[in-house]
């Protein structure tokens, strides 16, 4: 058997914004794209304890301790955690570990919404997509989940999609971000 320790690899391989479009004006603004795919993701079919009030139902997201819990479909709660997937047995028998099934990206900054509105038809206005809102919708022509949870006062959006689309979606977001001097950075390890 192999003597190497298994390495977890993210589906996202590009690290630079590519900017395929013709760029005349100089980019202005601020947006940062992070690959958060290594975060653990557990799918529950009932509301995890302690979230009944904060994640009131479909369309809501909340932070709980160091976790993020959101719901974008009836009977589905996704729990994100910065820590690697829990040891065996600690997730409820009805829950499913989907860490490996999904890619997770984060878009943060004053131009995050301006970036996303190029590829996603959600209304990012504070009235309709405030911090604490979650939605599964079409992003860059694939189904993806958009969760807004601001960080240190900056608008911040987690984008979760099927793993195999991860590299594609990361490319689409970084392309959209180029206009705002967007850059891909290493994940800081916190949610």
């Amino acid at each position: 058997m192999a003597d190497r320790t298994p390495i977890f690899r993210s589906p996202v391989r590009r690290q630079d914004a590519r900017g395929r479009g013709t760029k005349t004006g100089a980019p202005v603004g601020s947006v940062v794209v992070e690959d958060v795919s290594t975060a653990s993701k557990v799918l529950h079919n009932e509301a995890p304890a302690g979230t009944e009030d904060t994640v009131a139902g479909v369309g809501h997201a909340a932070r709980l301790d160091e976790r993020i819990i959101y719901s974008v479909a009836p009977g589905e709660w996704l729990e994100l955690s910065a820590h690697s997937p829990k040891p065996d047995g600690s997730i409820s028998p009805t829950a499913i570990d989907v860490t490996h099934a999904r890619a997770l990206l984060r878009v943060t900054g004053t131009d995050a919404a301006n970036t996303l509105e190029k590829i996603c038809a959600l209304d990012f206005d504070n009235r309709f997509t405030p911090s604490g809102a979650a939605a599964r919708t079409s992003v860059a022509a694939i189904a993806a989940e958009v969760i807004r949870l601001d960080r240190d006062g900056s608008p911040s959006y987690l984008i979760c999609c099927s793993r195999s689309y991860g590299d594609y979606l990361h490319g689409a977001i970084t392309d959209a971000a180029t206009q705002f001097a967007g850059q891909s950075v290493e994940w800081d390890g916190s949610l």
């Binding site: 974008v72 479909a73 939605a135 599964r136 919708t137 079409s138 189904a143």
Partner: peptide, 17 residues
Amino acid sequence: LAGWVEERWKHRSGCRA
């Protein structure tokens, strides 16, 4: 029919209801 109909749709890229 040309007029009001009751159809079935699926929210395929959303909640899948």
